[in-house]
Amino acid sequence: MTRRVELDRDTAERDLARLVLTVVELLRQLMERQALRRAEAGDLTEEQEERIGLTLMALAERMEELCALHGLRPEDLNLDLGPLGTLL
């Protein structure tokens, strides 16, 4: 039995954007958690904390813009991994 996948260009582009933005959001959240751990452990100077904080805020803002550009909501990036639960 042969299966054919029906692709719609608009849907494929949005789905690809969703996948890429999901990976970027996952990495952003991991970087944020690591920065918090380092700050709590006292491994960062005040200047480093400030720089990391501003960078993470700018990245979060840009993610919102990219989601809006592709008609996605932040909750659209939380992929369902079946028995493993959700990604984010």
Rank of each mutant, 00 (worst) to 15 (best):
D43P: 02
G53L: 00
L21G: 07
E13C: 02
G42N: 00
E32I: 05
E50R: 15
D15W: 08
E32K: 04
E61H: 13
L26R: 12
G71D: 01
E32S: 10
D8K: 10
L56P: 00
L16N: 11
L21F: 10
E75P: 02
M1V: 09
L77D: 00
L54P: 02
G71I: 01
E50M: 11
A68G: 07
E6Y: 10
E40S: 06
A39S: 09
R3W: 12
L88R: 06
L72F: 02
E65N: 07
L21V: 07
D15E: 15
Q29I: 10
L30W: 11
E25N: 06
Q34E: 15
G85F: 09
L21Q: 05
A35E: 02
L72Y: 04
E61P: 03
R9A: 13
L72M: 01
M63K: 03
A41M: 01
G71T: 08
R51E: 15
L66D: 06
A17T: 05
L56S: 00
P74H: 04
R33H: 14
T22I: 04
E40K: 09
G53K: 00
D10T: 14
V20F: 15
E40I: 05
C67W: 03
E61A: 08
G85W: 00
R3P: 05
P74K: 03
Q34F: 14
V5A: 09
D43W: 10
L7M: 15
A35C: 04
T86W: 04
A68Y: 12
L54F: 07
L84Q: 10
E25V: 08
L54I: 12
A68D: 15
R73N: 07
L84I: 11
E49P: 04
T86Q: 04
R51N: 13
A12R: 11
A41P: 00
H70P: 03
R33G: 13
M63E: 03
L77Y: 00
E65M: 10
T22A: 08
E40W: 11
A35L: 01
H70M: 04
L36G: 02
D8W: 05
M57L: 13
A12G: 03
E64S: 09
A17E: 07
D80F: 12
G71F: 00
I52P: 00
M57N: 09
T11Y: 08
R51A: 15
R4K: 13
